[in-house]
Amino acid sequence: MKNFLALLAALGLGVLIILSLQNNTLFNEYGEDVTGRDSEEYGDREYGEENPASGPANIVTSIVADFRSFDTLGEITVLFVSSLGVALLLGGTKQKRLDLGFHPNFMLRIGSKALFGIILMTGVYVTIHGHLTPGGGFPGGAMIASSMLLLYLADDTFRAKIKGFKILESVAGSLYVLIGIAGLFFADYFLENFLNNGVVGDLLSAGIIPLIYVLIGLKVGSEISGVIDNFLTEEVV
């Protein structure tokens, strides 16, 4: 009964929202183009152009890591603080692996290690090419972390060196902020792209953006790996 009422309420609300949005003349279901929106200006360059206002060929990247880079800084902070929180909640002084209840055979161990390398490399590739192709630091970092997850799942004795992750996380984050502050001092604004933008479409272009994306990739990778480690270990009682 309660479930039914809840269903009714949720459905009713959904229908009402849809109706109200349809009635709303200002709300466009699909627009014609970006005219009239702020994002009009984001795509203001051409392929192969030299030294444009913002460098990346991938416009989304130019928003994430350049125009609205501040959001991204906040975003990695969210991830940072939640990984800290997970460590605070689950971590302890002495940790041991969670017993998964199976022992991997030789094939699984070796195979997963081989796969680990491939996934890691893909992650690194995606990260480095973030300003040219779909992808970037976040998916790249997640891929790096997933390669870690693979090792954790495939091998019941594996434990990564958490300390190393921590250093990586900290250094990457600090560098991000420092790059921002460097922008404040070397140029005029925080997080300003003070390097040469190069040619749209080149690997070595877009100034600090690839740099930031690599840092993000490292940070996201190490943070998610840390979270995974925390979930797959338990405190020694």
Partner: peptide
Amino acid sequence: VFWIVALMVFLLWGDV
């Protein structure tokens, strides 16, 4: 969540 849903239904009811 319940109150949020209820309140929104209330508003949209009059609106739509």
